[in-house]
Design a protein around this nucleic acid. Structure first.
Lengths: 233, 233
DNA sequence: AATTATTAGTGTAATATATACATTTAATAT
DNA sequence: ATATTAAATGTATATATTACACTAATAATT
């Protein structure tokens, strides 16, 4: 038994994968393997299969194309303009992924054909993928202002200057170091380690790591139409 | 020319339509017109048609089922569990709509079979519609804390007590009247009218209306990992 | 006409948060 | 020993948020 007189449509999943290498933001792209637009640069995409949800499809595709697993992934929005794909109608549901570039660099380069592009030097993308990236970047800026999601882009151990660089890069601005440090530390998200990163300065900067429990709690809370105590509890 | 070896899937649009009648929040539901679950209560839903985008489908379906037009509509998320519909696979993209109940009450009751249910007295809903409503409500609470979207629920002229009731209802709490008034007026969103609402009190409360220009600007701004000046400009 | 009841409307002081701003410290290189 | 570089740190001011209670306007009642 089926629904009659209704049109069935191809459903694709496309993931906007952001990374940060310590100094700049990058986007992971792949050369499309089939026509049309074969060999052109594309987001990490594929078709939804019969027995999987969209979340599962996004994970599967990311793994197939890059080997990446256990990655931060969140639905962004759907794209459904009737002629967005010239071959036949395809609606795309997009996801945003955040990863620590260095953690997987070897793997991505060696085994797959995905490549990181600096956000300021993106190639032409297929279909409406450019628009997807712009919307994803705006959402990342929005969300990161309220939730500590950018930590997904950092290695397990990172320094305060690295953290500040990452925030400054996203908003294209400079913050006062003292104020930034105070604000970040006041969240209790960070545990200070005993060792220092000596690669980037003579003095060396102490490493910090995420307090995982605090992180999970803080991810859901927010920081104003409503007294904040009502929202954050 | 088509993509080969791929499964095409039915795509539905379901809209969670919230209203506020001055004292409580309500949800607009309709009795499903076809099997399965015929006559059961459902969100405003329908299938995506070949020549329309999802946004257009959401608008069309809302108009067909309720006569409503020019309504606040925003994509929520997709729902794609393989067996969410017992007949055949259907993925659903959901939208949230906000409307002033009174403005359309007559129209909805007379010409259509949609009905408003108080949020605390919802009937059983088909499929995963209950989950959709919960997620939509959470998102509304989240977004309304930063953006003045709840004004969509109010008539063109409203009083400060009505406005406060609406906010208190959503967060299930009480605010201090002086602080709330000060905060709302400091946004410059409101223009004071010369007449009063005399229905709800002896003294009468002055009407206010939205400053449309200010409203459009404020909708996009937000109000804390990042100094707010960076975001709001 | 006077009294009562009801809800609207308003200000101030205390606290918390955010911002602006410059010097000292640790380590390496010369 | 000195110079260089970047990390680390504190205080004063401004702004925003919160807590709190009385007066004003009107309709209903006597």
């Amino acid at each position: 038994m089926k629904y009659s007189n209704q049109t069935r449509i191809l459903v694709a999943v496309d993931s906007i994968v952001f990374g940060f290498d310590g100094s700049e933001y990058k986007l992971l792209l792949i050369q499309r393997g089939f026509a049309p637009e074969k060999e052109k640069w594309s987001l990490m995409g594929g078709f939804l299969q019969p027995e999987e949800s969209l979340d599962e499809a996004a994970k599967r595709i990311l793994k197939q194309l890059t080997g990446l697993q256990d990655i931060y992934l969140e639905e962004l929005k759907s794209f459904s303009r009737p002629n967005r794909d010239p071959i036949e109608r395809v609606i795309a549901v997009t996801y945003v992924a955040l990863i620590d570039i260095k953690k997987y660099q070897q793997q991505i380069n060696d085994d797959f054909h995905a490549r990181w592009f600096p956000m300021k030097e993106l190639p032409q993308l297929i279909f409406d993928h450019q628009e997807m990236v712009e919307i994803a970047l705006n959402k990342l800026r929005y969300k990161a202002a309220f939730h500590p999601i950018l930590f997904e882009l950092l290695p397990d151990k990172f320094t305060l200057p690295q953290l500040q660089n990452m925030y400054e890069g996203l908003y294209n601005t400079k913050f006062d170091k003292r104020n930034f440090t105070r604000k970040v530390l006041s969240t209790n998200l960070l545990n200070k380690e005993n060792d220092k990163d000596k690669l980037n300065s003579k003095k060396g900067a102490f490493y910090y790591s995420l307090d995982e429990k605090q992180y999970k709690d803080t991810l859901l809370s927010i920081q104003n139409f409503i007294p904040l105590t009502e929202i954050n509890g």
